[in-house]
């Protein structure tokens, strides 16, 4: 199962008009496209229409989450609505299952949020603003866990799609001082509690492509500045009998 993924394309009125050219042929490389957030520069409906110009005519399924840039204009509901009208599946605490030529793919998606990682994570203590920050992370992680839980056993491959990182591994290269604004270990905890074959995220432009959750699930940072190409393709081979790539699913019967 070939999965094309990219994040942080930041489309705006001033974007290079050639940026979309590689997408015309993505169906030759992949069975599905995952967009890991920050599709737009500032999250305006006009920028959402640019995203649609680039991805609305892609002949394979396109699944996306929004990123922080897509929220900046505080019109994320409109952006989501427009993208969905164009056939792009936008996930926020949702899950989708798609039958592809190579098997059934399940994707659970959420924007994610900051909060930091073990040893330097934010705690809901003190001012209400600090509690609100941490509680938002907790809520987002709960949404991810719930979405993953809704994926059925019929999925051959399961992917968690998010904008923020679930691990400091893929933040390597970013200044450690800003790690709490780039991801949260609570996202990894949600992933590790279920059966996932791959985590895809963006957001960390100066980060590292490859990492893993504490539970060993592969994590890939597909922010365009990191991968240095229009998209990265992951080839996950569904195991016989519906086992995920990691083979950790326990079959009943």
């Amino acid at each position: 199962m070939r999965i094309a993924a990219v994040g942080d394309i930041h489309l705006g009125a001033d974007s290079d008009s050639t940026i979309g050219r590689p997408w015309a042929h993505v169906a030759e490389d992949a069975d599905v496209v995952l967009l890991a957030g920050d599709l737009t520069k500032c999250g305006t409906p006009a920028e959402a229409r640019l995203v649609i110009e680039h991805f609305g005519n892609v002949s394979i399924p396109v699944i996306a989450v929004l990123g922080n840039h897509d929220h900046h204009a505080e019109r994320d509901d409109e952006v989501t609505h427009l993208l969905r009208l164009a056939g792009i599946q936008v996930l926020e605490g949702d899950a989708v299952e798609i039958d592809l030529p190579s098997g059934r793919l399940g994707v659970a998606g959420v924007k994610g949020f900051g909060g930091g990682f073990a040893g330097a994570n934010a705690t809901a203590f003190g001012e209400r603003e600090m509690k609100a920050f941490v509680h938002h992370t907790e809520l987002v992680a709960e949404r991810l866990a719930a979405a993953l839980g809704r994926l059925t056993d019929s999925c051959d491959v399961r992917v968690a799609l998010m904008h923020y990182s679930p691990t400091p591994d893929t933040l390597c290269g970013e200044r450690p001082e800003i790690h709490p604004f780039l991801g949260s270990q609570l996202l990894a905890e949600a992933v590790d509690a279920t059966q996932v074959d791959l985590v895809v995220h963006g957001h960390a432009h100066a980060g590292t492509e490859r990492g893993a959750t504490p539970g060993g699930i592969p994590v890939r940072n597909v922010a365009m500045p990191v991968i240095g190409c229009a998209y990265r393709v992951f080839d996950l081979a569904p195991a016989a009998g519906g086992l995920g790539t990691n083979g950790r699913r326990v079959e009943s019967g």
């Binding site: 940026i19 592969p218 365009m224 240095g228 190409c229 998209y231 990265r232 081979a237 790539t245």
Partner: peptide, 14 residues
């Protein structure tokens, strides 16, 4: 600015 001219590289086998 990120280089985006090339569409992709070889798939990563997972």
């Amino acid at each position: 600015t990120p280089a985006v001219a090339s569409p992709t590289t070889d798939p990563e086998q997972l």
